[in-house]
Simulated assay, not measured.
Amino acid sequence: MKFKFAHNNLNVLDLDKSLAFYKQALQLEETRRKEMPDFTLVFLGDGHTPHKLELTWLKDRKEPYNLGDNEIHLAFTVDDFEKAHELHKAMGCICYENQAMGIYFIVDPDGYWLEIIPESR
C-alpha cells in the first residue's frame, strides 16, 4: 500500500480575493473547479509539481474563520528569494521574518501563514 500527497485544503471567506492573492503572491494558477449549490472548490497548481492547493468557499459563510493559534502552515520554495521578498514586501503581506534561518512568512487574506524558503537552501 502506498500513499501520496494529493492536495492541501484552506477554507476562504472571499474566493475572488484569495484567488487574486495566490496568483500575485505565489503564481498559483487554477487547474480545476467544482461548483456546488452551497460551496465551490478551486484547485490551484504551481505548474511544476503535481501537488495542489484546494480553496473551499462556503457560499453562505460571512464570519472569518477562527484559526486558533495558527500553528499550521504551507511552505513554498522560490528560485529568487530576494525578488520574492521584494514582491511580498510591496504587497504588505510579510508577517514574520527569521533572518537567522533565512526564511520568512506571508499571510493570505484569511490569516493563513505561508513559509517562503530559498530553493538553494
Results as ranks from 00 to 15, higher is better:
A75T: 12
D80P: 06
K83S: 04
K4V: 08
F5W: 13
D14R: 05
K89D: 15
G68S: 05
F105E: 04
T56A: 12
L87N: 06
A90H: 07
W113P: 01
H51V: 14
A6E: 10
C93V: 07
A84T: 11
R33W: 02
E35C: 03
K2H: 14
P118N: 14
K52C: 03
G102V: 14
E35F: 01
H73F: 12
P64G: 10
F21P: 12
G102C: 13
Y112I: 08
K17A: 15
L53E: 02
M36Y: 13
I72N: 15
L15S: 07
D108F: 01
F43I: 05
T77K: 07
I103C: 11
D14P: 12
H73I: 12
D60C: 02
A84V: 06
E82S: 09
E29G: 11
Y104W: 08
L53S: 02
F43D: 01
P118H: 15
N98K: 02
S120D: 11
N9P: 00
I117E: 10
D79T: 02
L13C: 09
L87E: 05
K83A: 11
L19W: 13
E35W: 01
T40F: 05
K83H: 02
A6Y: 10
I116G: 03
K2C: 05
R61C: 00
F21T: 13
P64I: 09
A100T: 10
L55D: 10
K62C: 00
M1N: 07
K4C: 10
H51I: 12
E119V: 12
L28S: 07
A84Y: 05
A25F: 09
I72S: 10
P50F: 06
Y22M: 05
P118V: 11
L53Q: 09
L58Y: 02
Q99N: 13
N98M: 05
G92N: 00
L26I: 05
I106Y: 11
L55S: 06
E86Q: 10
C93W: 01
F39P: 03
Q27P: 00
L26R: 09
D108T: 11
R32N: 03
P64F: 04
T56C: 07
K89A: 14
S120G: 14
M91H: 09
E119Q: 15
F21R: 03
N9D: 01
F43K: 06
E71D: 13
L13I: 08
R121T: 14
P109W: 07
Y65I: 13
V107F: 00
N70K: 03
Y96I: 00
L55H: 06
N70L: 02
V42H: 09
A25I: 07
E54Y: 02
V78P: 03
N8A: 15
Y22N: 11
E115V: 12
V78G: 02
N66V: 10
G102Y: 10
H7P: 06
E115Y: 08
F76L: 12
L44W: 09
E71H: 15
A20S: 13
K2M: 11
Y96V: 03
N11M: 13
H88W: 00
N66F: 08
F43Y: 15
Q99H: 08
R33S: 04
D46Y: 01
N66Y: 10
K17M: 07
K34V: 15
F5A: 12
L87T: 04
I106C: 04
